[in-house]
């Protein structure tokens, strides 16, 4: 009986804890401040999709387009594009498509890259330069043997 009661107590504690969200029991102003903080955290952590969702939520709530928010949205979308291009280029380079990877890297040639993006760019570049080419004797078949 005692164990049963203890089990019910624990169940009650779990039940009380499960329904709490980050924004529950806060005033509207506090909720807005928390959303801004979450957005800053997402931006600094490189979670671009999350940051874009939060910025769009802010635009929807304020119902007016502020210049700073629009600029932040444009930057976040650019970063998402760069991340997508780098991911595709990495996959291509890993599969042996060095020229296609190089062509993808060209599409972000004019974009200012962050530190992490630059490291990824250099890695893809190095992998693509070491890939198969007509000029090198036998390199086409050396590369193809593993992939195909």
């Amino acid at each position: 009986m005692c164990r049963w009661a203890l089990g019910m107590v624990l169940l009650g504690l779990v039940g009380c804890g499960q329904g709490e969200g980050e924004l529950s029991r806060r005033t509207v102003a506090e909720q807005h401040a928390l959303l801004d903080a979450a957005c800053q955290q997402a931006l600094s952590g490189g979670e671009w999709a999350r940051a874009e969702a939060l910025l769009l939520l802010r635009v929807a709530l304020v119902e007016s387009s502020e210049g700073a928010v629009e600029e932040a949205l444009a930057q976040v979308r650019e970063r998402r594009r760069v991340a997508a291009v780098l991911a595709e280029a990495e996959t291509l380079a890993a599969s042996g498509g060095s020229r296609a990877a190089q062509a993808l890297l060209w599409t972000i040639a004019g974009v200012a890259l962050g530190e992490e993006e630059r490291v990824r760019w250099e890695q893809v570049q190095a992998q693509a330069q070491g890939g198969p080419s007509v000029g090198k004797e036998g390199s086409v078949f050396d590369g193809a043997a593993g992939g195909i």
Partner: peptide, 13 residues
């Protein structure tokens, strides 16, 4: 993307 890479290598070959 793997298909694109294979096509490229086939062309080179």
């Amino acid at each position: 993307l793997h298909g694109v890479a294979l096509e490229e290598r086939l062309r080179l070959a």
